[in-house]
Design a protein around this nucleic acid. Structure first.
Lengths: 329, 329
DNA sequence: CTGAAAGCGCTTACAG
DNA sequence: CTGAAAGCGCTTACAG
């Protein structure tokens, strides 16, 4: 059943059917009502696909993220979806994983699906291959990135100033009397490098030395956090505090330290990252750097719809994290 | 740029271009190579929309869930997305919230977008209004439901036998010496009713009485769990153990009890539901009913693709939860 | 192996 | 206010 069937049954042309379906006013009340009743009688659902073909817009956007199971990404994705939905868009969700080729593949598929735009969430998407994939497959429609930044005319970004978060964390730790601060890093991205730089500088600002041993690399996750804590203990590295890469990993460390009889925050202070529910759930509750996932999600969605509607927007925006003080420092 | 442009530049017809784009073999090597090079030179991305229009398939499915920020739903949605992606489908994610009208609206939109099928996750989607929305807007394409069950020819379901989980929990609790068991329920769905019935019966099986006071209703969430624990304490209800509605809420209760000086599991035993990371993160780690979200996600996706490919599948499937024993009982 | 033509289900100037 | 017609970008019998 299509628009022709409705037209025939209503005794009008397809033009008229199209007009009433789209709420145009230039249709006589009589014909409008007739069409409306036929539409209702048949539970008619018009083809968005056909419509998209002629209108050159699908009212669908793609969202790429490493893994929606991470609370942080789930929060952002949720907010984006809700905000886009409010504005009449649907969202195709893509969990890219960590492999670059997979991400590029998703970008190509989204281009073929003719999404109106994309939102890429996470600094891990900031690689040359992704840059090329966008340039090649998505050369003109808007793409909005979180914590990534490509110098491409159609690419916009919002970046959380995570290195400012590092400074916040260090200052707080030092103020509370800690001096041997370990930095935990997950992905090898420019954001991670930034954090490391800021970490070194932050220590220097307090006259504290840094050693290579006090920067440790992990994969995100509760058990990985436990492992990281073990490694720290086994290696005999001198430390009295930790800046975690995110909340779950930080909790993993908290629990492992506790299992070894260390008291939090007395023996070791721990700062998480993200301010997810995990930080409340932890014992003790985690003091965290909050990079405001909900705000970020909303901003990303608004940025994209603004561009889509031809509004003038800044190519780059920064958001600043805040410290939320709870019980782990 | 479209298939006509490619055809012209390649000196062939659009039929031939279409054939090489789709990997058909009945094209001479010479023309194929020519077309291929023109395609590559232009970074050509063909229109999936146009293709969908003629093929009557979008290779896209919708997934409805209350709120992707719930770890349990995030897990299921993630698994579905990955599994569908493997099979060449993309996923439109819809966070419906708890309002029925909103859910129905999403269903209509998905119908217009011509998704090939839908997966509805959660017993909260099992309402008359959703039933009608499917019947009206989605009368013939496959829909797969988790923990819901409509007697419609195109609707399939996988249900977690959560009442079996209740029995598991009660038996375990009784075995450990608890006898005043409180049941925590969130949504008012048929699954919740089932759990309540099984709870009463389970108590009876052990010669235990039940009182209305020992069934409490909450909204899911960490803070709601804390509140629930407070209420329990304030009301002076006699209890020595809790069967939670999910992990986060259970942890909220754990922490609130602890704050009141109650020891877990000595003073009160607590069983969570879902086996999410929260149950590991908790202090003490949560003994939980595991209803296997990953398995469920995979099964849902396979069920849908099986139907899509015309395979013969059962309309209803049950999965049974298991008990994971950790430290809270 | 190859191409002309019809058709998928819409929207929208254009003419009346 | 209304309709005939062209066009959106593809696929695929069909005929050769």
């Amino acid at each position: 059943m299509n628009i022709y069937d409705i037209a025939r049954e209503s005794g009008v042309s397809i033009s008229t059917v199209s007009r009433v379906m789209n709420g145009h006013t230039n249709v006589s009340a009589e014909k409008r009502n007739k069409v409306l009743s036929v539409l209702a009688k048949n539970n008619y659902v018009s083809s968005g696909i056909a419509k998209s073909l002629v209108l050159r817009s699908t009212n669908t956007v793609g969202i790429l993220t490493v893994d929606i199971r991470h609370l942080h990404y789930a929060n952002i994705a949720y907010t984006i979806e809700q905000e886009m939905s409010l504005r009449g868009y649907n969202v195709i969700l893509c969990n890219t994983g960590e492999h670059d080729e997979e991400k590029a593949k998703y970008i190509k598929v989204l281009a073929e699906k003719q999404v109106d735009g994309m939102i890429l969430v996470g600094s891990i998407l900031s690689t040359p291959l992704i840059h090329d994939a966008i340039k090649r497959y998505f050369p003109s429609k808007p793409v909005v990135m979180f914590n990534s930044n490509f110098k491409l005319p159609n690419v916009y970004d919002i970046c959380s100033n995570e290195s400012a978060g590092i400074k916040l964390a260090i200052d707080h730790l030092v103020e509370r009397g800690y001096s041997k601060i370990v930095l935990v890093i997950d992905y090898r991205t420019w954001v991670a490098e930034d954090k490391i730089e800021r970490y070194k500088r932050g220590l220097a600002e307090h006259g504290l030395p840094w050693s290579k041993d006090s920067i440790i690399r992990v994969s995100s996750g509760f058990e990985n956090g436990q492992n990281a804590a073990q490694v720290l203990l086994q290696r005999g590295i001198a430390f009295d505090s930790i800046i975690g890469c995110d909340d779950v990993t930080a909790i993993g460390m908290v629990k492992e330290f506790a299992a070894h009889g260390l008291r939090i925050p007395d023996d070791v202070g721990i700062i998480g990252f993200n301010n997810s529910v995990f930080s409340q759930v932890s014992t003790p509750p985690l003091t965290v750097v909050d990079n405001k996932s909900s705000t970020v999600g909303t901003s990303l969605a608004r940025l994209l719809t603004d561009v889509l509607q031809g509004r003038d927007v800044p190519h780059s925006t920064s958001v600043y994290p805040e410290l939320v003080i709870r019980g782990s420092v």
